[in-house]
Write a protein that binds this DNA or RNA. Structure first.
Lengths: 231, 231
DNA sequence: AATTTCGATATTTGATCAAAAATATGAACG
DNA sequence: CGTTCATATTTTTGATCAAATATCGAAATT
């Protein structure tokens, strides 16, 4: 990797600080699964790798810690967060609770114009699944749900849900999905989208809840399989 | 203020870093309402006030920003977060959704022994209200709910809810509660506690939802009153 | 031989200094 | 008299250096 960080040429977002650029760069790397879970992130290493001083690295690591992507211990440094079944279960429980809220508000608050692209995004996800590219699937899935989040107009809740997405992203890239998960996802998306478009709060909320629960169960299965095969 | 931060004497928690100690000190100050909403926090000022260098101040401010207590803009510095009605509404919506989850899990997972102090904490809150001390009320209220959070065994969700508490703490200290809010709170606590102790998930969830919604509405009323009287 | 203590090394944390960016100030001009 | 541009000041951000702390390994003692 070692992408340019001191944007001398200035291709994108010129007026960001070094630490912000570094944060996003590390975030993408981590989400892309370029680090082993539990891997150390040494300040000096990162600083040298990007050709910058220690300071912006420290700030970037703190930011990623705040997003729960890495863990920092006093005088011991930063590590890529490892997740166990309990954590994943709790995370998805939380996401389920918030997603129910967001879907409810989405149905209440979204304009028709806002919801127009929803079916298009639903189709895009189907295509991404057909392509077989995990990263594309994850992006399309995220885009589909993001539309509903945005329309709910609760950026605070959206932010927390987004953190959850980021946390499990690397694991999904690494370990993939269960056998029937993708087809199931497509079915559940259709149910959810149709309920939202029909402005049926009750059905939409139920669909969101089911969707999160089944995603959680699949993730837990994948995690258990991985742990089993690794032992 | 200007409390000792370099614990040379070492009365409590010797092995914490300066930035962590400073973070907690600032957090308490802000929650106690010692800063106006929107007030600036200059790095040099804070560093001089506590007799430390800029570095731990920067880390502390980043931490408080992660907790949404302050806001930092590039090259413009940190300010105590100001909240408007929309933000408060969103915040309480989120808290409501998570509290419903936590209460549900609490009923499912809590041991009888764990729930034993619940009625005691309910009484303690009644006493705190009788005392008329807002800080004591807030602490007792928090302690009552924290028991249910802890018993739910979802530290991730608990953490997010806790951030919500901290965010509105300063505003409650400053602006207080609506006329009937405290009595209402006491009634709702009793309903919630009894439902939990009876292991009645449905009633407990309903009580939690009602409790959050009415707390939100009261807070919004207080905010509107304040805005009205200040104009 | 196992355990513990001591010391060397690596790494984070804190302090000081320099650079960049934003805000405030003031002079020149319309 | 008000506006605009340039300059100065303030404040954050980044770099370098020093101190504190943890980790690891070796030596000594039980």
């Amino acid at each position: 990797m070692n992408a340019q960080i001191n944007n001398g040429s200035g291709s994108e977002a010129l007026n960001e600080t070094t630490s912000v650029r570094l944060t996003e760069m590390l975030r993408r790397s981590i989400m892309a699964g370029e680090f082993e879970p539990g891997a150390r992130l040494r300040i000096a290493d990162v600083a040298k790798q990007f050709g910058i001083s220690h300071m912006p690295v420290r700030e970037a690591l703190r930011q990623l810690e705040a997003d729960r992507i890495i863990e920092i211990e006093s005088h011991k440094g930063a590590r890529i967060r490892t997740v166990d079944a309990e954590f994943v279960g709790n995370m998805y429980d939380m996401r389920g609770a918030l997603e129910v809220l967001l879907v409810e508000r989405c149905v209440e608050r979204a304009s028709d114009a806002e919801l127009k692209p929803l079916k298009e995004l639903e189709r895009a996800y189907v295509q991404a699944v057909a392509s077989g590219d995990r990263v594309a699937m994850l992006a399309a899935n995220r885009a589909f749900h993001s539309l509903t989040y945005k329309a709910a107009r609760n950026p605070e809740a959206e932010r927390i849900v987004g953190q959850g997405w980021e946390l499990i992203h690397a694991y999904r890239v690494r370990y993939g999905f269960g056998r029937e998960r993708l087809k199931q996802n497509i079915r559940e998306h259709k149910i959810l989208a149709d309920a939202i478009l029909a402005r049926d709060v009750r059905a939409a909320v139920a669909a969101a809840k089911t969707h999160c629960d089944s995603a959680r169960d699949d993730m837990l299965r994948c995690l258990a399989d991985e742990a089993g095969s690794a032992s």
